[in-house]
Each structure stands twice: as C-alpha cells, then as structure tokens.
Design a protein around this nucleic acid. Structure first.
Lengths: 146, 146
DNA sequence: AACTTTGATGATATTGGATATCAATTGACA
DNA sequence: TGTCAATTGATATCCAATATCATCAAAGTT
C-alpha cells in the first residue's frame, strides 16, 4: 500500500492519523479511476460498492486529509463542486488542463513547460514557488469541426 | 461609460440586456476597487453605500452577466466563495496570481509569458486556446523571512 | 490476548454561498 | 406617453460542505 513511492500508513502516521478501512477504500477508488476528475459524491458512489457502510461525511473528511498529505490535488472546473485527482510524483511536477468551452470536456496536457517562467517569477517577485495550477480554456478539435 | 474601450450600454444591448442603475453601480464599484479581488458579498457591501435599495440577488445576477460579456473574470482562491476582477484588455491578455500558502495573500504577476507555451499546446493538441487561468502557490518574501 | 487511549466513523443537523420564484418595477423603443 | 419585455427586491429554496456527537476501531501498552 504505497503512493508515489511513499508508504501510505507512514504518511498518515506522520500526521497522527490512523490507517482505516475507509481511507484504504477511498485510495483504491482513486487509483482505479486515475485520469478522471472525480467529485466527492462520485467517489462516495464508487466506494460504497466495496464498502457499503461508509458515510458521505467520511469521504469528505478523507478527501480533505488526502489533500493535506499531498497525495491528491483539488480541481475546480466551475461546475458547483470540487473534484480530485491523484498527485503526480514530485519530480515531474504536474500536468495542466484543457477545458473546452463548448462541450465542457476536460483534457490533460502532459507536458509541464513552466519551469523557465517560474524561475523568472521567483527572481523578480522574490516568491518561492512550490506548486501551480494552470487551466487553458478554448475549443477542442471535435467542437471546432462542427 | 465604457469598459476596455467598448461602450457599456452597447455591450449589454448585444445580449438583449438593458442598462440599469444597479448594473452601472456594480461596474462603478469594480472600477473603484480595481486591483482587489472582491467577492459578491463584498461588492454588495460597497454598492449598497451608493445604491442602498439594491438586493443581493441582483449583485449575484449582475456579476454573472458581467462574466458572460467578458468584462470581469471569476477567480477561485478556495476560500468558499467566488471572487471577481475586471478583465484586462484583449491585446495584453491577462496576468497571473501568486498565492502565499502561509499568509494567504494574493499578489499579481503582471507579465503574461505563456504565448509560446500556448502555441505549442494549440499545435500538439489541436485545441484553440481563448483564455487561461494560472495560479502559482508558494511562500511570499515577507513570510520567507519569518 | 485483553486493555486503554485516542483518533475515526456514520447519521444527521446545520451552515452558507448561490440560485429559483414571482409580483412589482423600469428601461428602451415606437 | 404608452407598451412590453427585461429587471429588480424579497424571500424561499437548493445543495455542497461542515459541525456535532455518541459509538466504534486502530495501534500501542501491559
């Protein structure tokens, strides 16, 4: 049971938290749906299949904890709820999102070409950057045809 | 009464909308507080000073309309509400935000150096980019000292 | 293995930002 | 000035997210 090479139980212990069945089950669901951007309610739906006694509040709490220990990222696509995805490894930073304003589909951009820009900003503004979130809005190829 | 060189009343008319006292007052407040990132409730507070009969629902509706006609941008700093700022002119695209994870202060990065990156993405993913939102998280100079 | 401590859980009430409703009002154009 | 559709204010409502609290279960400890 490890995430990004780190032991899951150890990550929790560092925060004084316990490894529970429910937390394990939520992590499983996130792994099984990597590449998707699940809302808390959606995670709840999937987790209930293998852990029917779990409560919605627990999923909310779990997702919040997972964000704190930095194994997931919170996403906001302006659809009325927060969505989540597994964090990528430390080294390769992370990807960006392309959001089609016509069909609302969200795609991933695997590259992360902000290194140069970040360095410029760090120097000019004396601001130590630890993370970034980038969204590009526009029209996807499919919608462009129509 | 114009925004970014466009006539405000004309912008509204194109959408079949009327120029009302309330909409004028909200725009005034946004102009008087440019550089800030006001929430709807905050806008409501300021507008009421000069237009005490205005209702909160109207501010919510107005802000939504202003976003549709692209004279303001919606911001999300994960503080439980949406915030807004006047859009910059079309040509110089817009700025980014630096968010200090220690003191939660939000600063502006005036440059927009994503042109090159956008072109790469447009070609590789066949996606026509019309806008972007970029947030950098980290530690500001003040918090770095402590 | 039973005990103990303390964090975690599930059910549910509550919060709070945002939206829907609707009668009354007002801007825009003839 | 009259007409009509868009707009407004007040308020009810929605719903994602959080708070509450009694019960439960990890993970040490003896």
């Amino acid at each position: 049971m490890n995430v990004n090479g780190m032991d899951f139980k150890e990550l929790l212990k560092e925060k004084g938290c316990k490894l529970t069945t429910q937390r394990r089950a939520v992590l499983d669901v996130l792994n099984e749906h990597s590449g998707e951007h699940l809302s808390t309610e959606e995670i709840y739906g999937y987790v209930k299949e293998k852990c029917p006694e779990i409560g919605l509040a627990t999923v909310y709490r779990t997702v919040q904890l997972f964000e704190e220990i930095k194994i997931i990222d919170k996403l906001n696509f302006d659809d009325g709820c927060s969505r989540y995805e597994l964090s990528s490894n430390e080294e390769d930073h992370h990807h960006h999102h392309l959001i089609c304003e016509v069909c609302n589909k969200v795609m991933e951009v695997e590259e992360d070409l902000l290194e140069g820009l970040e360095e410029q900003i760090e120097n000019k503004y004396n601001f130590k950057i630890t993370n970034h979130k980038v969204k590009f809005y526009g029209i996807c190829s499919k919608c462009m045809e129509s």
